[in-house]
Amino acid sequence: MADNYVIEMLHITKEFPGIKANDDITLQLRKGEIHALLGENGAGKSTLMSVLFGLYQPEQGTIRKNGQEVKINNPNDANALGIGMVHQHFKLVECFTVLDNIILGVEDTKHGFLQKDEARKKVMALSEKYGLKVDPDALVSDISVGMQQRVEILKMLYRDNEILIFDEPTAVLTPQEIDELMDIMRGFKAEGKSILFITHKLNEIMAVSDRCSVLRKGRYIGTVDSRTPRKRNCPR
């Protein structure tokens, strides 16, 4: 049976002055899997994901979603295709509230008036469903780094994204917050969402991912099955 790829990045090349950050990379994401992207600093992981999210345009290569070629010119195009991204350095407005950050750019209006009550209900429902407890009225400048990450995740869920990119998501978290994030990612997988997970920590790859692709110096090295009997038997 053919693999059910929700995203295919085929022969992607991205260059910057003096450096080829991605050199003919092919990456394929199956529907409903957690796919880790492993490599040292400078391997091209974040650049490749930024291409998928529309922050960069590749010099060569194509992107397919569900077998159909797509053009992603910017993050709005990515969101329209159901692709969301939590960046390593969060993209939040610190003087705005949690709620305002989540709905920023996709505000619902009626007769010219912002429908914040409906937005609040949706945010709180998502917060409860996924165990992402937040205070919608808190200023982002007043909340912890771990809480800011929850806001970024809720931004993706609010936009109904089904393909979720996490760029080094555990780098700023406490051990307890890391465990909570792993559980959240497993919950997303159980719902059929597809996850690309950038990391350089082997223990996290073994704990949560289904497959792992390795990049080195901007080139694709290979993909391996990262599931183990120990991981399959661990509690969800």
Results as ranks from 00 to 15, higher is better:
residue 2 A to E: 14
residue 28 Q to M: 14
residue 32 G to E: 11
residue 35 H to A: 03
residue 36 A to F: 00
residue 39 G to H: 07
residue 42 G to Q: 05
residue 46 S to W: 04
residue 46 S to R: 00
residue 49 M to Y: 03
residue 51 V to L: 08
residue 53 F to M: 09
residue 57 Q to G: 06
residue 60 Q to I: 01
residue 63 I to T: 04
residue 68 Q to N: 11
residue 68 Q to Y: 03
residue 69 E to S: 02
residue 73 N to A: 15
residue 75 P to G: 12
residue 77 D to S: 03
residue 79 N to S: 11
residue 83 I to Y: 05
residue 86 V to F: 00
residue 95 C to T: 14
residue 98 V to S: 03
residue 100 D to N: 11
residue 108 D to R: 14
residue 109 T to E: 09
residue 113 F to R: 14
residue 117 D to M: 04
residue 118 E to R: 14
residue 119 A to W: 01
residue 119 A to F: 02
residue 120 R to H: 10
residue 124 M to C: 06
residue 125 A to V: 00
residue 126 L to S: 06
residue 126 L to N: 08
residue 130 Y to G: 03
residue 130 Y to P: 00
residue 131 G to P: 03
residue 131 G to I: 01
residue 133 K to R: 11
residue 134 V to I: 14
residue 139 L to P: 01
residue 139 L to W: 12
residue 146 G to K: 02
residue 146 G to T: 04
residue 147 M to W: 13
residue 151 V to M: 10
residue 151 V to K: 11
residue 154 L to N: 08
residue 156 M to F: 06
residue 159 R to T: 09
residue 160 D to C: 09
residue 165 I to S: 05
residue 166 F to Q: 03
residue 175 P to I: 06
residue 179 D to W: 07
residue 182 M to L: 15
residue 189 K to G: 13
residue 189 K to S: 14
residue 191 E to I: 09
residue 195 I to G: 00
residue 195 I to K: 08
residue 196 L to Y: 10
residue 204 E to D: 10
residue 205 I to T: 11
residue 206 M to S: 07
residue 212 C to M: 11
residue 213 S to G: 04
residue 216 R to T: 08
residue 221 I to A: 10
residue 223 T to W: 02
residue 223 T to A: 09
residue 225 D to F: 02
residue 229 P to W: 12
residue 230 R to Q: 15
residue 231 K to F: 15
residue 235 P to I: 13
residue 236 R to L: 14
